[in-house]
């Protein structure tokens, strides 16, 4: 009892120390910059970065850009969920097909698809469609693989209960197999959403189109150093909030 209490306290202390060390680092950078030991044209003042957040919200429509990026990621995520689960279910249903292409899907997951973005620009133009399609393709493989895994891992007892109630194939799938596989499928969807978001923001930056990614590109091209840093920080914060949110959602879906 006393031991676990002690553990808890050192853990809290560690977290505080971790946060404090970052604040101290920023303070040191600020001092070095103000005393001229670091160049302000290479590294902006941390205080100036913090100060430019308000400007980004007012002048650069940060909120609207955030919503645009979020909408693109969401569209890609929805496409991934629908198509990925459908393909995964088909692979589970036809064993031969699964044996033939499951390793291809896994290899596809390892392919650096985002590098093909110039090709997507040729096909879909410099538009939101390019971003959504690449976000979709970047995230599809985990959902397919996890859907197959989830459906294959449904406990036989559940299937037997369904059969005892004389459920036909379709009812068995929708009332027993699919609900039982949802927690596993969502592991895939969480990974996909992360891949989609990374690709969406990265592409916005690369093709200079859309929401937050484009903002970073624009501010960098204007040589607005504090603004660029603030926008990058904002992207990092948004990503982290997004990851935490889908992680919570996954935990909520998992039966305990």
């Amino acid at each position: 009892m006393t031991r676990s209490r002690f553990r808890l306290d050192t853990d809290v202390l560690a977290r505080v120390a971790g946060a404090a060390s970052i604040v101290i680092l920023l303070a040191v950078v600020e001092i070095l910059l103000r005393t001229g030991m670091l160049n302000v044209y290479v590294m902006p003042l941390p205080s100036a970065v913090l100060g430019s957040f308000g400007r980004l919200f007012m002048e650069e429509h940060l909120l609207r850009r955030f919503l645009l990026t979020f909408a693109e990621a969401l569209a890609a995520g929805l496409l991934v969920a629908v198509v990925g689960v459908a393909v995964g279910a088909a692979l589970y249903r036809w064993k031969l097909l699964r044996a033939a292409i499951e390793t291809w899907v896994a290899a596809f997951a390892a392919a650096p698809l985002v590098l093909a973005y110039p090709l997507f620009m040729v096909i879909f133009g410099r538009s939101a469609l390019t971003i959504i399609m690449l976000g979709f393709l970047a995230g599809i493989a985990p959902v397919i693989l996890k859907t197959v895994e989830g459906l294959a891992g449904v406990r036989p007892t559940l299937l037997n209960v369904g059969r005892a109630f004389k459920l036909n194939g379709r009812a068995l799938f929708w009332k027993v197999q699919f609900p039982a596989a949802v927690p596993t499928i969502f592991v895939g969807i969480r990974l996909s959403l992360i891949f989609s978001l990374i690709n969406v923001v990265g592409l916005e930056f690369l093709i200079n189109f859309g929401g937050l990614g484009q903002l970073i590109n624009e501010l960098a091209e204007q040589y607005d150093l504090p603004g660029t840093f603030a926008a990058i920080c904002f992207v990092v914060i948004v990503s982290v909030v997004f990851f935490v949110a889908v992680e919570r959602l996954e935990r909520w879906l998992r039966p305990t």
Partner: peptide, 18 residues
């Protein structure tokens, strides 16, 4: 671990290209 792993864990999957 307690001090820095959360930072690493959440910074890891952010889009680095920005």
């Amino acid at each position: 671990t307690k001090a820095y792993e959360p930072l690493l864990f959440y910074l890891g999957p952010t889009p680095k290209i920005v």
